[in-house]
């Protein structure tokens, strides 16, 4: 074991502030979906159980929308060097992921409708492992494009067969 105790630090860069709005909107839509289904069941199927679950769902939804985006924003961060890409994601559960540049196979961006509206993008970095894609969600679109360019350049500089 190493002499001094070490821990992983937070990656240097945060995601775009607009990601806050994106996560909030997404949470609102998801919660609205759940609530609408329950209201429909109550009104049209006379499911009395919904009288109980509706207020609970609504309370949890308010909490989720209020807490999750802020928390996520404080956690989500990323960083890359010539040697590796390093990310931290999550809120209740948090996960660091690291992939060496020499093992990167593809670098993609994708933008859902909400992200397009807000000018955001998600960058996905895949390696030869079926289980190891790194996602940097909620980047400013221009930053994402720049990041992809730089990553592609770095990975091309260190070309192995990536397995």
């Amino acid at each position: 074991m190493t002499a001094t105790e070490l821990r992983l630090r937070t990656p240097r860069h945060r995601v775009s502030r607009k990601a806050l709005l994106w996560w909030t909107l997404r949470a609102v839509l998801q919660c609205a979906g759940l609530i609408i289904v329950q209201v429909a069941l109550l009104l049209f199927a006379d499911l009395d159980l919904m009288r109980w679950t509706l207020p609970i769902t609504a309370g949890l939804a308010v909490l989720y929308v209020a807490v999750m985006p802020q928390w996520r924003y404080r956690v989500h961060s990323w960083e890359f060097t010539e040697l590796a890409v390093y990310t931290l994601t999550g809120w209740l559960s948090q996960e660091w992921r690291v992939a060496p540049a020499s093992r990167i196979q593809t670098v993609d961006t994708n933008r859902g409708p909400l992200q397009q509206l807000l000018g955001l993008a998600t960058v996905t970095v895949t390696t030869a492992s079926a289980a190891g894609p790194l996602e940097i969600a909620g980047l400013d679109h221009d930053d994402a494009v720049r990041l992809v360019d730089e990553l592609t350049e770095t990975t091309q500089a260190t070309r192995g067969d990536a397995t």
Binding site: R7, L8, V98
Partner: peptide
Amino acid sequence: ALALDAVPGLLRPFAEPVSPESRPTP
């Protein structure tokens, strides 16, 4: 420590000593 030792160099740039004045992790 395990991750650092198993693949030397990969995680080292992203590790820091545990000390009170270091940046708090979220």
